[in-house]
Structures are given as structure tokens and as C-alpha cells.
Design a protein around this nucleic acid. Structure first.
Length: 222
DNA sequence: GGCCAGGCACAGC
DNA sequence: GCTGTGCATGGC
């Protein structure tokens, strides 16, 4: 028997197809390090601007954890400037890179503990879970503002639920599978960007039949 | 020109 | 514990 979360994610997959996240340009070493950097740079920032910042790092030949740790702070800030919040993001990148080096580049993916990531300044729950899922290939479902918005509108979660409560709900509802988690999170973000903004275009929404919020908006426009 | 973007830390109640 | 605010750029 399919639960509601499986049903919704299945619908998104059918409607949009596979997303293939996380996009990487293979310019960083190791390759998964780019995901770690991207996870920090994308904090409250559009992916478009993150790409410019990644380009900046490659241009300056800052492509490994030790490159970041050793990099001159001003040079680092300048490289990532287009992603905004560059003062704090430069510091966060240095802290995260130091953590990766401390835990050992070769063992980071397998062994880094979620708690250890969370204890690093600048790494919150969403950033930690993005790193764990997309860089480390470990089964942690990423909960972001989009997930909250979509699923609270449908009525599956409370809008102000605890992050961990929502994550547990998703992880308990879905088959424990890294590729599945990656696809579904990507689909949720992609869907939200297209049709589930603050001014929702609900008539285009592939979840309309099962979304009470959408039905309400259609019959009762804002 | 205002609002938003794949958050987080910290101060002040 | 909860709420507000700073962080900053670029696109629409």
C-alpha cells in the first residue's frame, strides 16, 4: 500500500522525469567536494549565482579542501562574491574544508558523523543533510523551505514542524534508498520553483487533484 | 524598485 | 523557547 508521500513523489517523478541531481562540473578534487562547496554557497542564494561563484573558484584554481584552507581570505571572498554573503561563506568554506581534512579526505564520505557536521559553525541541518546525501551518498532526506511549503499546503506536515520531525516522516515513509532520496528532493525543489511559489500557479500543478491548497486557490483566487 | 533565492547564527525578549 | 535581524549579490 502506497503512502501519501510516496504517492506525491511518484507523481512528480512521472510528471517531470528524472532530475539527476547534484549537478557537478568535475573541476574540483575530489569531485564530491564541489557538492560540499555548493551546499554552503547556495544558502539563501539562487543556484545561478552559486555557479558564478564556483566558476570564480575554478578560475583562481581553488579546487581542493587544502586549497581553500590555505587560500588568502580576501582572494577567496572575491572568488565567491557573486553568491552573496561572501564574508561569512568564505569563513564557512574554510571551516568545512578543515573538517574534511581533519576527518581525512578518503574517509570523510563514509565516516563523517552528522553531529560532527552540525557542530561546525555555518553548517545547519539542511546543509549537513545535503552534504550527507549528495556528497557522501548516505540516506538522509533533505528538508528545505520548498519541501515545507509544498507538503504543508497539501496538509501532510504542519508548516512550523521541527526539521527533524519532517525528515523522520520522509525517511520512514520512503524506501531507504540514496538515489530515491536524491531524485525526490530534486523533484520537490524543481516543482516548487516552477509552480508552487508564493503566488502559486495552481492550475498548472500536477498535484492539483490531491492538493487542497491548490483546489482552494483555483476556486477562490487570491 | 521590491522581492526573492536550494540558511544560519546570534541578540533580545 | 520563540522572533527578528544581519548577512549581500544578481535576476526578474
Amino acid at each position: 500500500m502506497e503512502n501519501e508521500i510516496q504517492q506525491i513523489c511518484g507523481r512528480l517523478l512521472k510528471h517531470y522525469g528524472k532530475q539527476g541531481w547534484w549537478p557537478v562540473r568535475r573541476s574540483f578534487e575530489p569531485e564530491w567536494f564541489e557538492v560540499c562547496i555548493g551546499a554552503v554557497l547556495t544558502q539563501n542564494t539562487s543556484w545561478q549565482n552559486v555557479e558564478k561563484a564556483l566558476d570564480g573558484l575554478v578560475r583562481e584554481n581553488i579546487i581542493t579542501p587544502s586549497d581553500i584552507v590555505k587560500a588568502d581570505s580576501e582572494k577567496l571572498k572575491k572568488a565567491i562574491k557573486p553568491s552573496g554573503f561572501y564574508n561569512q561563506k568564505a569563513e564557512r568554506l574554510k571551516i568545512l574544508s578543515g573538517l574534511i581534512l581533519d576527518s581525512g579526505i578518503d574517509s570523510f564520505q563514509q565516516k563523517i558523523a552528522r553531529e560532527r557536521l552540525l557542530s561546525a559553525k555555518g553548517i545547519g541541518k539542511e546543509t549537513a543533510d545535503s552534504i550527507l546525501l549528495y556528497a557522501c551518498d548516505r540516506p538522509f532526506f533533505v528538508i528545505d523551505a520548498y519541501t515545507r511549503r509544498i507538503f504543508s499546503r497539501i496538509g501532510i506536515v504542519e508548516e512550523k514542524s521541527e526539521y527533524e520531525d519532517i525528515r523522520t516522516l520522509f525517511e520512514n515513509s520512503l524506501e531507504k534508498n540514496v538515489d530515491l532520496y536524491k531524485e525526490y528532493h530534486a523533484l520537490i525543489v524543481g516543482h516548487a520553483k516552477q509552480v508552487c511559489r508564493k503566488e502559486p500557479l495552481c492550475e498548472k500543478c500536477c498535484l492539483l487533484e490531491i492538493c487542497n491548497y491548490g483546489k482552494k486557490q483555483i476556486s477562490n483566487p487570491p
